[in-house]
Amino acid sequence: MSASMQGKVVLVTGGGRGVGRGVALAMAQAGAAVVVNDLGVSLKGDDAASISPAQQVVDEIAELGGQAVADGHSVADWDGAHAMVQAALDNFGRIDAVVNNAGNLRDVLFHKMTEDDFDAVISVHLKGTFNVSRAAAPHFKQQVSGAYVHMTSTSGLIGNMAQVNYSAAKLGIAAMSKTIAIDMARFNVRSNAVAPFAWTRMVESIPEETPEQKKRVEGLKKLIPEKVAPLCVALCSDAGAKVTGQVFGARNNEIYLFSQARPFRTAHTADGWTPDAIAERVFPQFANDFYPLHKSGDVFTWDPV
């Protein structure tokens, strides 16, 4: 089956740059009309907004012969999220898919992280994903069809340094995606999460102070943002109609399907557990299967292809 988006309308948040820009362009090339949402702010998301990045992508789509409109609302705002969905309805008459890509970063070591650092990232990534998804939900329900793609991250799925806020949001997004898939299945609506590997301004902020950090950054520079887009298009197309509740990764020419948490070791006692018994029996029994404190880079150790 062809992964065409002909006749469909897609909202792409954070669509003015990086991965979002690649997704918006790919959706248009596949035949979709696109609402390109981008607040146009700095990486921290704390300066004046400009719609120009979104408009630039709209202009690119127009040059390709496609249809698109720009939107400058914040995903962190409930009314703003509804406004961007309404923009799809007002301009194109329907909405068929949402790609939740908007994001920000406030990387700080946990013991130095402020409440504002935490709240700012949670508001955009986790609450923003909820806001936009929820705004589209009644329309998906009414038309008995729809697709969500939510951007998660290996920072949440595996772990990373100085990203307590970002990791919490991104793992929360993976869980949110799964539960949306469960809740909306009866309406023929599907929901999947994608962990994108890409060199964008989001990762340009990674420090390069040590040889290890420099080596990591050199590897990240090989990751092409536009390589994430084909998976997003396929998931939103009719060809992805039976794919829901999954967590994928896209890393240049590689696509991953991530495992989801399931129990794999069990300890049982007929008499019930005491703290001492747990310490004496359970911890040693499970010790060989404890996960080490891996960071994302410790797991993905091979060069991207």
Rank of each mutant, 00 (worst) to 15 (best):
T274E: 07
H268C: 01
A261Y: 11
D238W: 03
L220G: 11
R186Y: 08
A193Q: 02
A185N: 13
E209V: 09
L220W: 09
A261V: 13
F187V: 06
A241P: 06
A261S: 13
T269W: 03
L171M: 15
E209A: 12
N188H: 13
I206S: 10
K170H: 07
A270K: 11
G272C: 04
A174Q: 02
A175L: 09
P225G: 07
K222I: 10
D271I: 04
A195S: 15
T274F: 08
V203T: 15
T266Q: 11
P284I: 01
W273F: 06
Q213V: 13
T266H: 08
S205M: 10
T210Q: 14
E226W: 04
V233I: 11
F264I: 06
G219A: 08
A175M: 12
G172S: 06
K170M: 06
V243F: 10
Q213H: 11
N252C: 13
L220F: 08
L231C: 08
R216Q: 10
A267C: 11
P230E: 07
V194W: 02
A277C: 04
V189D: 02
V228P: 00
F258N: 02
A193Y: 01
G172E: 02
C232W: 03
R190H: 08
Q260M: 14
Y256G: 01
C236Q: 06
P263S: 10
D276W: 04
I206M: 15
L223I: 07
S237P: 02
E254P: 00
I182D: 14
P207E: 08
F248Q: 00
L235T: 06
T266F: 08
M176Y: 05
R186P: 03
I224R: 09
I206P: 00
C232S: 08
G172W: 00
S177T: 15
R265T: 11
F264N: 12
G249H: 01
R262W: 06
T200G: 01
K178V: 04
N188T: 09
R251S: 00
T244C: 05
P225E: 13
Q246K: 13
K221G: 14
I255S: 06
I182L: 15
